[in-house]
Nucleic acid binder design. Sequence first.
DNA 1: CTACGTGCAAACTGTTTGCCTCTTG
DNA 2: CAAGAGGCAAACAGTTTGCACGTAG
Lengths: 126, 126
Amino acid sequence: MRMTPQRKVIIDILKGTKSHPDALWIYQNATKKIPRMGLGTVYRTLDQLEREGEIKRIDFKGIAHYDANIHIHPHLLCSKCGKIVDISESYDFDVNSLDLKGFKVESVNLDIVGVCPDCQSKKEVN
Amino acid sequence: MRMTPQRKVIIDILKGTKSHPDALWIYQNATKKIPRMGLGTVYRTLDQLEREGEIKRIDFKGIAHYDANIHIHPHLLCSKCGKIVDISESYDFDVNSLDLKGFKVESVNLDIVGVCPDCQSKKEVN
DNA sequence: CTACGTGCAAACTGTTTGCCTCTTG
DNA sequence: CAAGAGGCAAACAGTTTGCACGTAG
């Protein structure tokens, strides 16, 4: 696939953030650089990047989030606000010690779901 | 919440399968027992059960799947067909050895994404 | 000229919601 | 008769897609 300005902007945005943005957020930021860019382009590009293994997709609460950091690391997911935070330490877990039932492994995700500090303080809200 | 027939059927279906069904599949099976049951009821009930901690929700490829087995175990997810398979062995991973950044942990998911044997054989399809 | 990426808007799919009815205590 | 659970259909949100256009090789 060609490296178009749109594609470059999307990659730059993803590499430049530690939040794990969804398509809408990426779109809103991308249009600051390329105002006429379409949301469909964002989805198409993210899809391609994921299939090429350039980025990782994280499904949470029905929304797809994307992470340019494909090196294995756990995520903290807030069940209240949907926020996703990295745990930078990698973990060594030998997947091959498990019975993989013939699956050809592509990636391993360790997701820790809980309530983030922010949502813990604003109790009873939400 | 009251134990209504609808709720019972949904719980029974979930406890009686090892597939990790989505709402539609549950709905289709539930209506075999209660023909006039509505899809909204399925969603509402699954939502409540999840919030009560009775079942676990697995988001994959934009679809919510549910698992009545809430005891910690890894999942194999097929990136081609979306199938979810249990790995029955539990894993002991001490989450507290990680920097949890103030999150109050609710659950830990180890998801192994890959290609299942079925999809490996029918290559180039999909 | 050809191939392909894009903008745009319409279509789709999974999920949620409002409202009224029915049931239960 | 009050409170809550369900049926139904409309509404929603996120995502995908078809098509016409533009641009690079």
